[in-house]
Amino acid sequence: MVQTGSGAADPIATNLSEDDVTTALRAFLLSILPAGTEVRLGQQNRVVAPLGLFVLMTIVVRQQIATNGSKYGIGTRTVSRQEHVTIQVSVFGPGAGDMIERIVTLFRDPYACQFFQQERPQGDVAPLYADDPRQTGFINGERQYENNWNADLHLQANYQYTIAQQFADAATIDLINVDAAYSESNS
């Protein structure tokens, strides 16, 4: 279980984080891209773009796809949430068009299912499908156009949150003779 929170003890434990999802996708991308290709998270401030071919990943949608489920343990309840996570993968630099085609093709292949199964044997992250690649204009800091292709990759992430749950482990039962206790003559 991954403990969440910011320094203080978090009473809710989870099996999966957003970082786990992007780390699994990054590992997949690194397995199919040329050696030395940098794969980073998007939307980071004060980070210089690498030279040559590089990839940025940005989570753009997180959508619940099923009703929560619950499983009970000793003193706990585990709430399950199935989520459809869309990550935009942007490829920059020479050969970006060829690399986005490689990414989309192999993400749509059983290779991706096998890779994620090995990377996350718990089965909590799995590929669903990929949208078609699209070229978008990108103007760098020197006001020059650069080659940029992107596609949305869709994954399923299965989150589990374990919370404390009170249970009754004993009960006292008293029998009451209803006729004697509530007869009309007593009222």
Rank of each mutant, 00 (worst) to 15 (best):
L51F: 04
Q82K: 06
I32E: 00
T78F: 09
A27V: 05
I103N: 01
T105S: 03
A112H: 05
V85K: 03
Q43K: 07
R108S: 01
S70V: 15
L106A: 01
V79R: 14
P110G: 04
V48W: 06
E38L: 15
F107K: 00
M99E: 08
I87E: 02
F54P: 14
V61A: 05
V85N: 10
Q118H: 09
Q135V: 13
I100G: 00
C113S: 13
D19I: 12
D19R: 06
P121C: 10
A24S: 15
R40F: 13
T136W: 08
Q43Y: 04
L16I: 07
P110E: 06
L30T: 15
D109K: 00
G123N: 12
D10G: 14
G7H: 12
A126P: 08
L106R: 03
M99H: 09
V85E: 10
V91Q: 06
G75W: 07
A24Y: 05
P94Q: 04
P94C: 03
L29F: 06
A112G: 05
G69I: 05
T37E: 13
D19K: 11
L29H: 05
D124H: 10
R26M: 13
G93E: 12
A27M: 14
D109F: 01
V104C: 00
R81Y: 05
T105L: 01
M99R: 11
D109S: 04
T23N: 15
I103W: 01
Q82V: 09
S31R: 07
V47P: 07
A126S: 13
T86H: 03
G42H: 05
A24C: 05
R62V: 11
V104H: 00
R26F: 13
E83N: 05
F92V: 14
P127Q: 00
D98E: 06
N15S: 10
Y72A: 09
V61E: 11
L51H: 08
L29N: 02
I32L: 11
R120K: 14
N15Q: 08
H84P: 00
P34L: 11
G75N: 12
N68A: 13
T78C: 08
